[in-house]
């Protein structure tokens, strides 16, 4: 379980998070929605320690994420970045097996390559992709490789940052299905950031809406459409009129 309590983060005068509270239950898939620039990515980076909150606490299974062995903590996470964030200078299998050949118990290259090819197969890519460089892949294939890298070391928690951005609707559907399958299969805790409502419905067990630095609404995905919150309703139906200013 990930628990965020009274988390604040500002960049200069821009107060992105203003005392955010959120609980992500273990083994559930939480999707964070909200407009562009509302601090969704900052929230995710605060949990990973890539950005340090100004105030508040973040715990994973009761343990403060800012304390203890950082490498051991990060080894419990996998992350799919918005743009893939694959290392250009490394082949696909080396990207997928990056963590496997490093860390406290490194595998040898042959073993890591085998695991990487297995993970690539899991995300629907053929073994011949393993020796290509990321620049030789399409956007959808890069996302799949990023997904394979995120699951390669069997993490307990996986973060997905805008997993379908820049993909066509069919490829978005494929990625959404893969994410849902993998989350269920591995029994991991998942946190996804998106503003693609199709993804929300495909991936989420629970949804939280971030607005103005706070969680505006949270609940099971099944309750989302009937929730009375006007901010949530404006967002999920994509209305220009409503309490959320359309020009931000």
């Amino acid at each position: 379980m990930i628990t965020l309590t009274d988390v604040h983060k500002a960049f200069g005068n821009n107060h992105v998070l203003r005392g955010l509270d959120l609980v992500i239950p273990k083994g559930e898939s939480m999707v964070i929605i909200g407009g562009s620039g509302t601090g969704k990515s900052v929230l995710l980076k605060c949990i990973l320690g890539l950005v340090h909150p100004d105030q508040g606490t973040i715990t994973l299974e009761g343990q403060d994420v800012t304390r203890g062995d950082r490498d051991a903590f990060l080894a419990r996470f996998g992350m799919l970045f918005q743009g893939g964030a694959l290392f250009d200078s490394l082949r696909v299998w080396e990207n997928v097996g990056f963590r496997l050949v490093r860390g406290s118990k490194p595998m040898n290259k042959d073993q890591a390559r085998e695991v990487a090819i297995e993970k690539l197969r899991r995300v629907g890519l053929k073994p011949n992709v393993a020796d290509l460089y990321p620049a030789e892949l399409s956007g959808g294939m890069q996302k799949r490789v990023g997904l394979a890298r995120a699951i390669a070391a069997e993490p307990e928690v996986i973060f997905f940052d805008e997993p379908t951005t820049g993909l066509d609707p069919i490829m978005s559907g494929v990625i959404n299905t893969l994410i849902r399958e993998i989350v269920l299969e591995m029994g991991v805790t998942a946190m996804t950031i998106t503003h693609d409502m199709t993804s929300v419905r495909a991936i989420a067990d629970r949804v939280a809406m971030l607005h103005d630095g706070l969680i505006r609404w949270t609940g099971p995905v099944a309750d989302m459409d009937a929730a009375p919150d006007p901010y949530l309703q404006q967002f999920i139906h994509g209305r220009a009129e409503g309490p959320i200013e359309s020009v931000r």
Binding site: K45, L48, G49, L50, R70, D71, L74, A75, F77, G78, M79, F81, Q82, G83, A85, L86, F87, D88, F98, R99, R102, G103, R149
Partner: peptide
């Protein structure tokens, strides 16, 4: 610089490197 703007440096950190 390109690695930074394409989040590859963040990816390194999340991969305990």
């Amino acid at each position: 610089g390109t690695m930074k703007v394409t989040e590859q440096i963040d990816a390194l950190v999340t991969l305990s490197t």
